[in-house]
Design a protein around this nucleic acid. Structure first.
Ligand SMILES: [Mn+2]
Ligand SMILES: [Mn+2]
Ligand SMILES: [Zn+2]
Ligand SMILES: [Zn+2]
Lengths: 182, 182
DNA sequence: AAATCAAGTAGTAATTATTATCATGTAGTT
DNA sequence: AACTACATGATAATAATTACTACTTGATTT
């Protein structure tokens, strides 16, 4: 038996206060101004236990800021992801991907072009089998998503390594980069 | 060093022929009629190495079936997922979720209501650290997505266990089931 | 202090992915 | 060949996200 366990809300709340305390500080270091909207979003995001959607964050912030715009929440959340203040639970796809290969297996995803490849990782399978439950959750299976850079994107990012963020920000941009299929 | 490795296209092509051979058979067993559209979609899906999107499948099928509709492709792909003929690479979210917790960690996702919880799995972290690369991919990190059933959904699915598929099929349906946040 | 400037936002339009609707077509059966 | 339940095409509707634009505000310069 392993040491896997749920992170409890006690842990979470101490993490939250720690993160919240220095938020304004970190903003200034990054040259971002500290606005009520940004404070509202980071607070809602950290406070909410639920991996909330943009919409959910919006609703929460609006409790205290009647006039905040949903578009602003989207913008701020994406910005937070760029600067490392938040992350998407699934940065993998903007749109669903399908796989004809239905036996259990894992994936590598290139964070540059978002191409996906199948991977076999027996250790991960063994690991998953060794976890029958996580707190109240009855484990059914799982999938290891490995984030990586493919060869093309590695060479590409060397040339542009001094640019700002190499991750494509818009769908159209991502589409331009994406590798052509057969 | 472990035994993790990419599944090569040689493996894939034998898998494809094997799957394709009995496809019509399996359809009939499930009471699904075998249409040119479904044949086109399964073939495109299996042939294409790329974990294609619905749009990409659509483009491929259209090469041979000029008049096929994108809506049909969506419909068929979702159906394939329901009957086990395909799977979403990320069945997790219909819409992006955000997390204020940026340190590396893993997630459990309830396949019923799609609620998400943080998990700590040191073995998975060790495992990931032990894989510096996968073929041409330079590994950066990764995340284990554990699929599970939460307590609520377990009791719910007992009552409705003889229904068809317990997974919510539409967003509105999922919304109805989803657990209320604080 | 007035003018200038830049960053950020609200409100809204546009875009994109997905699902619903419904009239028509067809695969599987008799 | 005829029948019928299921499938499809065409299109509308919905939902998530992003783009656009005018406006606000606070800082900087004159
Ligand atoms: Mn796959
Ligand atoms: Mn998390
Ligand atoms: Zn790449
Ligand atoms: Zn659940």
């Amino acid at each position: 038996m392993g040491t896997a366990k749920l992170l409890d809300s006690q842990w979470r709340s101490s993490y939250v206060t720690q993160r919240l305390k220095a938020f304004a500080q970190r903003c200034r270091e990054r040259g971002m101004s500290v606005t009520p909207q940004r404070l509202g979003v980071i607070k809602a995001l950290l406070t909410c236990e639920n991996h909330p959607s943009a919409e959910e964050v919006f609703v929460r912030v609006r409790r205290h800021q009647k006039h905040i715009s949903l578009a602003t929440v989207h913008r701020i959340l994406e910005q937070f992801c760029r600067v490392g203040e938040a992350r998407k639970v699934t940065p993998l796809h903007d749109t669903a991907r399908y796989d004809g290969h239905v036996e259990p297996h894992h994936h590598v995803v290139c964070v540059g072009c978002r191409c996906v490849r199948d991977v076999e990782i027996p250790e991960a399978d063994r690991l998953l089998k060794s976890i029958p439950n996580l707190g109240e959750f009855a484990v059914l299976g799982g999938s290891l998503e490995v984030y990586a850079l493919c060869a093309k994107c590695r060479s590409k990012s060397q040339k542009t390594s001094n640019r700002r963020n190499s991750r494509p920000k818009t769908k159209s941009e991502a589409a331009c980069l994406s590798v052509q299929a057969t």
